[in-house]
Structure formats: C-alpha cells, structure tokens
C-alpha cells in the first residue's frame, strides 16, 4: 500500500509541475478522439473526414477555452448534416440551440458531460457515467447525463431522419415538421433510452447520498453500491420493459466501470486543486519571472467525535 501511495505522489507531483504541457496534450487527444468518432459516424462531408482536418481542429481545441470545444463539436455535426440534408442540419441546429439556451448557458462546466456521454458509449465505458457523475457532481448532473444519453440514442435514428427529404424548396417547412414529429415519436417511444435515463438518475442519486454519509470508506461503498444498483436496475428494467440488453456486457461493463472509478478516486484525493503558474511582474528595481508550483495537500481523515450518553 505504501508503494502505491508513493507512486501516486510521484504522478501527482509530475502532473502539477507539468500541468501547463499536459492539459493541452490531453485536450488534443480527447478532442481528436471525439472528432474521429463523429466523422466516422456521420461521414457525409468528405472534407471533414480528412484526418488532417481532424488534427487541425483538435489542435485548435487544445489551446482555446473549454466552452468553445462544445461549439466546435456542434459546428462539425452541423457541417456533416448540411451535406446530407439541409432540413436535418436546420432541425439539429435548432435542437442544439435549444439545449444551449436551456442548459449550457446556465451550467457551462457541467456541459462537458453532454459530450462525454456519447464518447463513453462509443468506447463501451458508459457504465462509468452515473458513478462518476454521482461521486463528483451530484444530482445536478442528472440533466446533462440525460441530455447526453438522449443524444446518443437519437444518433441511431439519424439515418431514418435523413430519408425524409423535400423535393422542392417550398416543401422545406413541411419536411421540417415531419422530421420533428419523427424525432419526437422515436425518442418518446424508445424504451431503452428511457430505462437508461431512469437507471442512471437512480445510480447518481444513490452514489451521491452514500458519498455524503459520515462513515469510513464511504467512497468505496458508494462505488460498490452504484455498480450493484446499476446491474439490478437494468435487469429489472429489461424484464419489465422488454428491452434488448446483454446481461454479460452489463455485468462486465459495470465491473470495469467500478475498477476505473476506484483508480480515479485513488488519484483524486488531493485537496486544493491548484495548478502550476508562470507569472511576470515588476517593481521599481526588478523584473520578476516566477514559476509557482502548488504544494500537494493530501486530504487527512477527519476526526469524528461520538458522544455516548
């Protein structure tokens, strides 16, 4: 155990020292994965599918504020759809605008979850979503998780949506309405999506509540409880709603999710998350070029006093 703690200290020290380099590289890799996945899935605009375009976009994302990543992702989706169907591009554009105005505008930091959900589905790591959201964000993350799940399930109806097209410009309003109706019917009748949203919401709430309890190893119990509830709830939902779901995939996926969360928790127990800073200032006598590296403060176990009367 001491060896593991020492390894963790080394990793955390390295990370804090070189965070200015590590963050852009991490953003580049993640955004490259997102754009490759998107372009492979949509593949309507040949020029957007060019690997050089993906690399260029990922390079841009690596050096801009995080909020712009969501806008660029929306632009990429919109561009692909524009080449496939003008009406679909317009409809999806309106849907993205609605999501932005109703949610992203008020909670920009949590909006990363909306993009993370479809990406994790693509990597078959989607069972980590409710565990991670419940432990690190709480019930407030139910909304972006639900939006992300809806976006993932919506993507399965995209081919059907693109089949609805207008023959003349004057048919566009009617086509838009037909597409909107198709979309609403498809999403509202999708039992798998409904089950996923409900189960993820339950797991988020339960992991959050257990994490907040003042007991030893509350984080570990929260992860274990989340994994078990995830499995049981999906099985019950599969039986009641008659949804197609692989039980083996469910169990293995949740075990892997539990393992990933355990590793994440092990490295995340660092108080005062501050990064290395490079600042330049001057006074009457000198110019100062200062690099400030934060000290690592590990969360110590709180002393709990029990009064027995």
């Amino acid at each position: 155990m001491t060896g593991l703690l020492e390894i963790r200290e080394i990793f955390i020290r390295l990370y804090k020292r070189y965070e200015r380099m590590i963050m852009p590289i991490a953003k580049f890799i993640i955004s490259l994965m997102v754009f490759f996945k998107l372009n492979n899935f949509l593949n309507y605009a040949d020029k957007m599918s060019n690997p050089l375009v993906n690399i260029a976009l990922a390079l841009i994302v690596a050096f801009i504020p995080g909020n712009w990543f969501i806008l660029i992702t929306m632009l990429v989706i919109g561009t692909h759809l524009f080449f496939a169907s003008l009406e679909a591009a317009l409809l999806i554009g309106i849907c993205m605008l609605i999501i932005y105005l109703l949610y992203i505008g008020i909670a920009p930091k949590l909006s990363y979850i909306i993009i993370a959900v479809p990406l994790l589905y693509g990597l078959n790591l989607h069972y980590t979503i409710p565990l991670f959201a419940g432990l690190f964000f709480g019930p407030i993350s139910i909304i972006p998780v639900s939006i992300g799940v809806s976006i993932f399930y919506f993507s399965r109806y995209l081919p059907g949506l693109l089949e609805i097209s207008s023959k003349e410009l004057t048919d566009i309003p009617e086509t838009l309405i037909s597409m909107f109706q198709y979309l609403m019917n498809a999403l509202l009748q999708d039992k798998a999506m409904l089950l996923t949203i409900i189960v993820f919401a339950i797991v988020i709430i339960i992991t959050y509540v257990i994490k907040k309890l003042e007991i030893d190893y509350n984080w570990a119990i929260a992860v274990a409880a989340g994994v078990i509830i995830n499995i049981i709830a999906f099985i019950i939902g599969k039986v009641i709603l008659r949804v197609e779901l692989s039980i083996i995939g469910l169990i293995f996926g949740n075990i892997i999710a539990g393992g990933i969360l355990a590793i994440t928790l092990f490295f995340s127990i660092v108080l005062d998350y501050s990064k290395a800073e490079k600042v330049v200032f001057e006074d009457d006598d000198y110019y100062y070029y200062v690099k400030a590296i934060p000290k690592i403060k590990i969360n110590k176990a709180e002393k709990r006093v029990k009064r027995i009367n």
């Binding site: 309106i94 605008l97 609605i98 105005l101 909107f180 109706q181």
Partner: peptide, 17 residues
C-alpha cells in the same frame, strides 16, 4: 431571454405539428 427564445422554438415546433 435565452429561455424564452428556446421555448418559442419548442412551442413553434409543437404547434406546427
């Protein structure tokens, strides 16, 4: 203002259907 614009779009779509 943002929410009003979003709701106008949603209600517009719904009423069109």
């Amino acid at each position: 203002l943002g929410v009003t614009i979003a709701l106008i779009l949603i209600f517009g779509g719904h009423f069109s259907i």
